[in-house]
Amino acid sequence: MSEQRCRSLIPFIYIKQGVMIMRGKNSGLKSLGNQVFFTGPTLLFFCITLLIPFIYGLYLSFTNMTSPISPMEFAGLESYRTAFQDTKFWSAMWLTIKFVAATIILVNLIGFVLAYLVTSGMKGQNFFRAAFFTPNLIGGLVLGYIWQFIFVQSMPEIGQKLGIEILRLGWLGDEQLAFWALVIVTIWQSSGYLMIIFIAGLVSVPGDIIEASTLDGASTLRRLWSVVLPMMVPSFVVTVFLTLKNSFMVYDLNLSLTNGGPFDTTKMVSMHVVQKGLIESNYSVGQAQAIVLFVIVAIITGLQVYFSKKMEVEA
């Protein structure tokens, strides 16, 4: 709905600008001045921290540099050829896709359930909202080290005392369990954040249609499925996008929790790129792989936003 309103505003602005420019040069300059004043600082920092490094990185991927300080010699698509032939890159990519799949489903599901619970009018729900959101305020690196302690020290201790076989040995030493350790920590970190977005979506579902569906005799589940969820699609567009992007680009948690171990079985694609580019002295190949990763993530998230937008309905 708000989207619609925005769109209808745009021609109006254009007309206004047109009028301004027709009025005289001064007001055109003034409008430019306004634009620079309001968007300039953001644009400047966007350029410095994102756009320029990105274009520069793209350029570097066409060279054959081995380290950030080696001479820039143009080498065409050579780095991309090496990047595509790197089987470890693709296995890291596949692992990341599995991680993305697991986290998208679980984080959104748990985030939604939490949001549903803390908007249901239970006692102390504001406290729970704050409590579930707090993990998101802890940085990924710190979080990784905290959970490393839990997986390495606390859980085996509990497993030993209570005789729970699966907790008895450190999880981070087993390929499968280390992967799920990463998923669990991601859930713990991000589901509270998504919960906030879902809460905003849930409270904006119009009361009249809820009331109408109740009068029509819909059960709680039916109402959730046929009324609330379709109205929540805009929230899901945002949350799925966020989890997709964050999970594809995961690095800090990966580094601090498992550091790719045991024997490189939990090395996600970002970590592989960093290692390729900076540690193994294959700078341009690492750059090329980073660009490939960017393209893949851009396509997937683009498609996701495009198709899920189509699912939006209006009350």
Binding site: Q148, F151, V152, L169, G170, L172, G173, D174, T258, G261, P262, F263
Partner: peptide
């Protein structure tokens, strides 16, 4: 750590 020698 003999039962699972690789780990943190």
């Amino acid at each position: 750590y003999g039962e699972r020698p690789i780990g943190v």
